[in-house]
């Protein structure tokens, strides 16, 4: 009875989110990782293998719950205000530092602040890649930037949404190169990709995994990457850093956080467990299939990465400023 088994599995998933009372040695009841984005997105697809690997190490059930809404703000706010006992964790993307900054910009009470979270570990960090359609005139990033300088506001790009990750990447580039592009926001990374493939915009910044098949099929041309180093899958594509635009550095990263106030022994246990979990062979295969390299960082190293990233993004948000309707 497979339908029955699936119903049972569903029931189990539902039960894992129910709270238990007793406070004993950590962990003594199921841990929940909150992915603030819908199933199938980067956060969800990273959270699930992390959960499975963590479960093996801790010998304790770890479930993933998608709490979606308002570009991730709903799920992040939920974790920020949940009990800091190590049973509710957050798998966040870079939007964790964008949302509070955007709230500040609009002068509204923030849904959450960055210091409500304790960083546990960085799991992956993929630099975005600038792509244009294969039939477009720009063969190199230099040609693209020069043309954009000549025709300010004429070359268009799609993004995953205003102040979204793909928008921020482009904003950092525009600022670093002193160019102005035309922004057409879409509701998510999927529609943004569809838009460039349909020829409705000229350029897109995107994570490597989703555009690789389209590059291989000859539909899109990569020009440059936002990374510190070149992407392994695209060794011939230079970085903006190499081209002299050092501030154009951006990663689509995924990291694990706990609410601030979680007791130190619990944090330590989680950090140790994560260090073992990322070396699990099943975890490595899962990330391999997603074509997402593991970029594990912890402690001071992660903090430095996170702070530098947050600083660039805060600056990016301020540079965009409030968008006034025309």
């Amino acid at each position: 009875m497979t339908p029955g088994r699936i119903a049972l599995a569903l029931l189990l998933v539902l039960c894992t989110s129910a709270p238990a009372a007793a406070q004993e040695a950590y962990p003594s009841r199921p841990i929940t990782i909150v992915a603030p984005f819908p199933p199938g997105g980067v956060a969800d697809l990273t959270a699930r293998p992390v959960g499975v690997a963590l479960e093996k190490v801790l010998r304790n059930p770890v479930g993933v719950v998608n709490k979606t809404g308002a570009a991730g703000a709903v799920g992040m706010q939920y974790v920020a205000t949940s009990r800091p006992d190590g049973y509710t964790l957050l798998l966040a993307l870079s939007s964790i530092s964008i949302i509070p900054e955007a709230d500040k910009l609009f002068g509204r009470p923030p849904a959450f602040t960055v210091d409500q979270f304790e960083p546990l570990a960085l799991i992956s960090a993929d630099p975005t890649i600038l792509v244009v359609r294969a039939e477009s005139p720009w063969k190199t990033a230099r040609e693209f930037i020069e043309d954009a300088r000549k025709r300010p506001g004429q070359i268009s790009f799609s993004s995953s949404g205003v102040y979204g990750t793909l928008h921020m990447a482009m904003e950092l580039l525009q600022h670093a190169a002193g160019i102005k592009l035309r922004h057409v926001p879409y509701a998510g990374a999927g529609p943004a990709l569809t838009a460039i493939l349909g020829g409705h915009v000229d350029a897109l910044a995107s994570g490597p995994a989703v555009i690789l098949p389209h590059i291989k099929a000859g539909k899109l041309r990569p020009l440059a990457g936002w990374g510190d180093k070149r992407v392994a899958a695209l060794p011939e594509v230079p970085t903006f850093k190499e081209l002299g635009y050092a501030e154009a550095e951006f990663y689509i990263w995924a990291g694990l956080f706990a609410p601030t106030g979680t007791p130190e022994p619990v944090l330590q246990k989680l950090r140790d467990a994560l260090r073992v979990a990322v070396n699990d062979s099943d975890f490595k295969t899962a990330m391999d299939k997603l074509e997402t390299p593991i970029a594990f960082k912890q402690g001071e190293e992660f903090r430095k990465f996170f702070e530098a990233d947050a600083r660039r993004l805060a600056e990016g948000v301020r540079n965009v400023g409030r968008i006034e309707a025309k």
Binding site: L45, P213, K219
Partner: peptide
């Protein structure tokens, strides 16, 4: 996404 999880890269090919 389900295809990507299984290592099938969805694309024109």
């Amino acid at each position: 996404a389900a295809m990507m999880v299984h290592g099938v890269s969805p694309g024109p090919l």
